[in-house]
Amino acid sequence: MLHPLLSVLATDVDNITIDFDEGSLTFLKIVIALILFGVALDTKLEDFAAAIRRPIPIAIGVVAQFVLLPALTFLLTIALDVRGSVALGMILVACCPPGNVSNILTHRAGGDVALSVSMTAVSNVLAIFMLPINLAFWGGLSPAGDDLLHEVDMSVWETFGEIALVIGLPFVAGITITRLWPRVGHRAHRIVGPVSFVLLALIIVLGFIGNFDIFRDYITIVLLAVCLQNALALALGYAIARVTRLPVRQQKAMTFEVGVRNTGLGLLLVFTYFDGLGGMALVAAWWGLYDIITGLLVAEVWRRRTAAPADVVVPA
């Protein structure tokens, strides 16, 4: 049973908003575009050809990310009986694609980096269509989040356009540069990737500082939900890889592809369509920091316990 104070705060979390001005929103869009640009710089057209040549693990990853994870997250929101904005935040995170952090963690763990890169590329392209559809579908089914979703002036097509702009254009630009000028693309990736994630972390930290009172009072409401959802995502990736008998190195790639989400994109949608709705912003912001910490821990444990060297990359 919740402490009386937490019960009151949990009720109020649907009514709070995170302060985020227009200039900060524009900067967030630029940072998210940089993140996707960095992913594309590490992606070649051959990666999509490799995905076609290895359809089974790619199909497994797509099902896990776009079907099973949102469905299990929806069930988790019901089991935890979270407030509407928290439920929508958890569903939104589950609908987001992975970023290239999953590639870095796969490399660190000694996993199949080629598969990881191919899955990230395919997932980000599919997310342009699947994210708004999944959010509308599972959010509409949520008993807690349905009313809030209907209060928001957001259509699937408008969300599709926003995501296509943020993901599609940087992705096409990055792949084009890598295709035409591979050396430039390789060097740029080594700069754009780390810088974009540092900038995203800076945005989140500054958001915490600028809204310190809100985070101090309400962060405990989303801590358990985020921890359980993150564990669920990592466990789902690992379990589905084991059940389908993928090789160990592919199991590592699958774990991080399903377990790591690009929550910066989720934050962008929260501030664009939901006016910084409290529970959603708290979930996405905390996820953005927490999943990197847990991902690094899992990768380090895996690297130490398995014989596969972290710097070996199997060609796609």
Results as ranks from 00 to 15, higher is better:
Asp112Tyr: 00
Phe74Asp: 02
Met154Tyr: 11
Gln65Ile: 09
Ser85Leu: 10
Val117Asp: 11
Leu92Ala: 06
Ser85Lys: 09
Ile104Val: 15
Asp153Pro: 05
Val101Gln: 08
Leu126Gly: 03
Glu151Gly: 11
Ala64His: 10
Ile104Ala: 06
Ser118His: 10
Leu141Met: 15
Thr178Leu: 03
Ala144Leu: 09
Val152Asn: 09
Thr106Lys: 08
Arg108Val: 10
Ser142Lys: 01
Asp146Trp: 11
Leu105Phe: 10
Arg183Met: 01
Val67Ser: 14
Phe129Thr: 02
Val86Ile: 15
Met154Glu: 07
Pro170Ile: 00
Val172Phe: 13
Trp157Phe: 14
Gln65Pro: 04
Ala79Glu: 09
Ile133Leu: 14
Ser142Ala: 00
Arg187Gln: 15
Thr73Cys: 12
Ala127Tyr: 07
Val156Thr: 11
Leu126Gln: 14
Ile133Asn: 03
His186Asn: 12
Pro132Leu: 10
His107Trp: 14
Ala164Trp: 10
Ala188Met: 14
Leu115Ser: 02
Gly145Pro: 11
Val125Arg: 10
Trp157Ile: 06
Gly140Gln: 13
Ala94Ser: 14
Asn134Ser: 14
Ser155Arg: 09
Leu105Asp: 00
Phe171Gln: 01
Gly168Cys: 11
Gln65Arg: 11
Ser142Gln: 01
Leu105Pro: 00
Met130Glu: 01
Val156Gln: 07
Thr73Gln: 13
Leu105Lys: 04
Phe129Gly: 00
Leu68His: 06
Ala64Asn: 05
Leu72Pro: 01
Val166Ala: 04
His107Asp: 09
Ile60Ala: 10
Ala94Phe: 12
Asn100Ala: 06
Asn100Met: 13
Leu115Lys: 01
Ala79Met: 14
Ala144Trp: 04
Leu68Lys: 05
Leu131Cys: 09
Ser142Gly: 00
Pro98Ile: 02
Ser85Glu: 08
His186Ile: 05
Ser102Ile: 09
Gly89Cys: 08
Thr176Lys: 07
Arg108Glu: 12
Leu105Ser: 03
Leu149Arg: 00
Glu162Val: 15
Leu165Gln: 13
Ala79Arg: 04
Thr77His: 13
Asn134Trp: 08
Leu135Cys: 00
Met90Phe: 03
Gly99Leu: 07
Val63Trp: 02
Leu68Asn: 08
Ile60Asp: 07
Ser142Asp: 06
Val63Gln: 03
Asp112Thr: 04
Gly174Met: 11
Ile104Tyr: 14
Cys95Val: 09
Met90His: 08
Glu151Cys: 08
Pro143Asn: 04
Pro182Gln: 10
Gly140Tyr: 08
Ala71Phe: 15
Asp153Asn: 13
Gly110Thr: 05
Asp112Met: 06
Asn100Pro: 05
Ile78Lys: 07
Ser116Asp: 08
Ala59Gln: 10
Phe74Asn: 02
Ser85His: 05
Asn100Ser: 14
Pro143Val: 03
Trp181Cys: 11
Ser155Leu: 06
Ile78Gln: 15
Arg83Tyr: 05
Ala87Gln: 03
Leu141Tyr: 02
Asn134Tyr: 12
Glu158Arg: 15
Ile177Ser: 00
Ala164Tyr: 14
Ala59Cys: 12
Phe160Val: 06
Pro98Asp: 03
Val117Asn: 07
Ala127Asp: 07
Arg179Lys: 12
